[in-house]
């Protein structure tokens, strides 16, 4: 298992998306691109190894669903453990960005 995949902020973004609703891989990339106004262009080649790692760590579970086109889709759903991890990461992120903002130019800069 690749630990470096778990540490990145991509994990946090994926968990955040899944906190709201279950999704399949392609949907996650689309949604992430839309919400970040195409700043986050996640490659599928990064996404799937990450999803599988998260699943092995019991932060996600997956299930299959057959679509109208008879395609089998693999949906991912966040677990209790995944939610906990997300909140920890989000908190860390908050502390980090606040610190960066303090250095760059105080609170005004952050809220401007």
């Amino acid at each position: 298992m690749d630990k470096s995949l778990l540490s990145g902020s991509t994990t946090m973004l994926i968990l955040k998306l899944l906190e709201e609703t279950d999704m399949y891989g392609y949907e996650m990339i689309e949604e992430l691109g839309k919400r970040s106004k195409n700043v986050f262009e996640l490659k599928a080649g990064t996404l799937y190894p990450l999803l599988h790692t998260l699943e092995q760590n019991n932060m996600l579970i997956s299930y299959e669903k057959v679509t109208e086109k008879a395609r089998i889709r693999k949906y991912y759903s966040i677990t209790k453990r995944g939610r906990k991890h997300l909140h920890e990461k989000a908190e860390e992120w908050g502390v980090y960005t606040a610190a960066v903002n303090n250095v760059l130019g105080g609170v005004d800069f952050a809220t401007a």
Partner: peptide
């Protein structure tokens, strides 16, 4: 093209599925 290099993708998946 958007999926990125198949060897790299495969290797990462290989690492995940020991």
């Amino acid at each position: 093209e958007e999926m990125s290099d198949p060897v790299v993708v495969g290797e990462q998946l290989d690492r995940t599925h020991r």
